[in-house]
């Protein structure tokens, strides 16, 4: 049956009489607790696919089923961690998370419970100490941590991560990847992450969905990763199945679906 079902999704953008087909016949079933990465060259429509799952962009045909019910508008059950963090600059770190928590749990939790829940989520991403700072006063990595805390605090059925670490330097990125792995291990969330980083995809995912180049991007291949968890970055470097998985993804991206325009 599957937890989340992406059912024959097509997406065409129309501008006047011209119409471009971005996504063609995307079907994918994701189980509860799974970590799925979607990888592909830039412009292949990965972000469009994520936006369709989030409900921010409507699919032209086909649809998204979550627990057997169709979802076609955005909602907190599919929280999004945006690429550029999208924190509201006039609110403190605490208030940014509180905005989400008060909206989602305003009725079901008391004021004190909500406060505890906000602090719990900030502590989960190690940002409790900066709760009174404004987004402009913290680093890019910290902003993204708060973005993740805001997403988690909605207690979503699925957490959607849109190239969450794309704008960060390599060291900060590795640090945040470890955090995400820990959170995934502790909470068992279902997560879908868009990325263009092969190592990131292999390190974090249970499955990697590889997309062909657009226009009319399809799912080219789905790679099942059978690496034991918890995964350790350094141990994996020489792990046979890790190397094989990396190789498979790299071959897909650079041999079979080279991004011609970028070369």
């Amino acid at each position: 049956m599957g937890y989340l079902k992406i059912d024959h999704v097509d997406k065409r953008f129309r501008r006047g009489s011209a119409s471009t087909e971005v996504l063609k016949d995307i079907s994918l079933v994701i189980d509860k607790g799974e970590f799925v990465s979607i990888i592909g060259h830039s412009g292949c429509g990965k972000s469009t696919l994520l936006n369709i799952i989030a409900g921010l962009t409507p699919a032209t045909t086909g649809g998204i089923l979550l627990e057997g019910k169709e979802v076609n508008s955005p909602g907190p059950d599919r929280a999004v961690v945006f690429q550029n963090h999208s924190l509201l600059p006039w609110l403190s770190v605490y208030d940014n998370v509180a905005l989400a928590v008060n909206k989602v749990f305003g009725r079901s939790k008391s004021r004190a419970e909500r406060h505890d829940w906000i602090m719990h989520n900030l502590d989960l991403v190690q940002m409790g100490h900066a709760k009174d700072k404004r987004p402009a006063e913290i680093s890019g990595g910290m902003k993204q941590r708060v973005g993740i805390a805001r997403g988690l605090a909605m207690e979503p059925k699925i957490l959607l991560l849109d190239e969450p670490f794309g704008a960060l330097d390599a060291l900060t990125r590795a640090h945040l990847q470890d955090s995400v792995m820990q959170i995934h291990a502790a909470l068992g969330n279902t997560m879908i992450m868009i990325t263009h980083d092969v190592d990131e995809a292999v390190l974090l995912s249970d499955r990697i969905v590889m997309m062909t180049n657009g226009p009319s991007a399809r799912i080219g291949e789905v790679l099942d990763l059978k690496l034991a968890r918890p995964r350790k970055r350094l141990e994996l470097v020489s792990d046979r199945s890790y190397i094989a998985a990396r190789e498979a993804v790299l071959k897909f991206l650079y041999e079979r679906h080279r991004f011609v325009e970028a070369a």
């Binding site: 508008s73 907190p76 909605m154």
Partner: peptide, 12 residues
Amino acid sequence: PQDYRNVAKVLR
């Protein structure tokens, strides 16, 4: 920014 609008949409 569209990002703020998206945040608002996700939060309904």
